[in-house]
Simulated scan of single mutants.
Amino acid sequence: MARLWLHLCICLQIPGFCRNLLLSQTPEHILAQTNNKTEILCELKKEHTGLYWYRWSQERQIFEFLVFSNVLGKTTYGANISQNKFSVHRASVHNSYSLHISHLHALDNGIYYCSVSQSSQLFLGSGTQLSVVDVLPLPSKTTQAPVSKKPVRCITKCKAASEKGPCSPLIWIPLAAGALLLLLTLISIAHRLHRLRRRLWLRIHRQ
């Protein structure tokens, strides 16, 4: 028995020393409110005679045996451990156990370990940190500043190109040709109007 507790002390002082693939414990952290309840899961990778549950209190520096549950469902509680507070449930299909803790208060804070004994050695799970608070913190809300919409200016292709450099010949050559054609058309119209005015003037003076 002394050898078993010596091995347990080494496990607590050297994190990961006794953690192995025999146990899978979840979750890693639990934040719960006072007077509520919670549960911790522990899955065994192979069949064992039963499962131990321990609690390490950092504040009181106490490693406390809580309860042992065997494959037949029989439970053995540690000294001064309330059966109304702690209970163990076993799921035979997945060979897993769950520790249920009710009526939570500040004294329940600590790291909970599931454990199996093999060859006079105590193998621990990864541990679950339980923190009990009176009021749970509210989830933080991230506020996003409204995006200011700036008016979009419509600019011509030539102007857009001029901001980067001179207009392309493919743009200004058709424009120049169109302007020249318009100018010739205006000259022709002006010439016709001049001839028409000349005829009217001659006709009036002949009368």
Rank of each mutant, 00 (worst) to 15 (best):
residue 1 M to K: 08
residue 3 R to A: 11
residue 4 L to G: 00
residue 7 H to M: 09
residue 9 C to E: 14
residue 10 I to Y: 07
residue 10 I to P: 00
residue 11 C to L: 03
residue 14 I to P: 02
residue 14 I to Y: 07
residue 14 I to L: 03
residue 15 P to C: 07
residue 19 R to F: 12
residue 25 Q to H: 05
residue 26 T to L: 09
residue 26 T to S: 13
residue 30 I to F: 03
residue 31 L to F: 01
residue 35 N to Y: 13
residue 37 K to Y: 06
residue 38 T to Y: 02
residue 39 E to W: 12
residue 42 C to Y: 02
residue 43 E to W: 07
residue 43 E to L: 12
residue 44 L to A: 06
residue 45 K to Y: 10
residue 47 E to W: 04
residue 47 E to S: 12
residue 48 H to T: 07
residue 49 T to N: 11
residue 49 T to H: 09
residue 52 Y to D: 01
residue 56 W to R: 09
residue 56 W to K: 11
residue 59 E to N: 02
residue 59 E to W: 00
residue 59 E to T: 04
residue 60 R to H: 05
residue 62 I to N: 11
residue 62 I to S: 06
residue 64 E to C: 13
residue 66 L to Y: 05
residue 67 V to S: 07
residue 68 F to Y: 15
residue 70 N to L: 02
residue 70 N to T: 07
residue 73 G to P: 04
residue 74 K to G: 06
residue 77 Y to W: 01
residue 77 Y to Q: 06
residue 77 Y to I: 06
residue 82 S to Y: 04
residue 84 N to W: 06
residue 84 N to M: 10
residue 85 K to V: 13
residue 85 K to S: 03
residue 88 V to P: 04
residue 91 A to G: 07
residue 92 S to P: 06
residue 95 N to Y: 06
residue 96 S to M: 12
residue 98 S to G: 10
residue 101 I to W: 00
residue 102 S to T: 13
residue 105 H to T: 12
residue 105 H to C: 08
residue 113 Y to G: 04
residue 114 C to K: 03
residue 115 S to I: 00
residue 118 Q to K: 11
residue 122 L to I: 14
residue 122 L to V: 08
residue 127 G to I: 13
residue 131 S to P: 06
residue 131 S to L: 14
residue 132 V to P: 06
residue 132 V to S: 03
residue 133 V to P: 05
residue 134 D to T: 14
residue 135 V to G: 07
residue 137 P to R: 09
residue 138 L to Q: 13
residue 139 P to R: 09
residue 140 S to F: 14
residue 143 T to F: 15
residue 144 Q to R: 11
residue 146 P to Y: 10
residue 146 P to T: 14
residue 148 S to F: 09
residue 149 K to H: 12
residue 150 K to N: 07
residue 151 P to G: 01
residue 152 V to Y: 04
residue 152 V to P: 05
residue 153 R to D: 11
residue 153 R to T: 11
residue 153 R to F: 13
residue 155 I to G: 02
residue 156 T to G: 15
residue 157 K to E: 08
residue 162 S to K: 14
residue 162 S to D: 15
residue 165 G to K: 09
residue 167 C to I: 05
residue 169 P to V: 01
residue 170 L to K: 09
residue 174 P to F: 05
residue 176 A to E: 08
residue 178 G to M: 01
residue 181 L to I: 02
residue 185 T to Q: 06
residue 186 L to N: 12
residue 188 S to L: 15
residue 190 A to N: 13
residue 191 H to G: 14
residue 191 H to D: 13
residue 195 R to E: 15
residue 197 R to N: 10
residue 198 R to T: 10
residue 200 L to G: 08
residue 200 L to P: 00
residue 203 R to W: 08
residue 204 I to A: 14
residue 205 H to N: 15
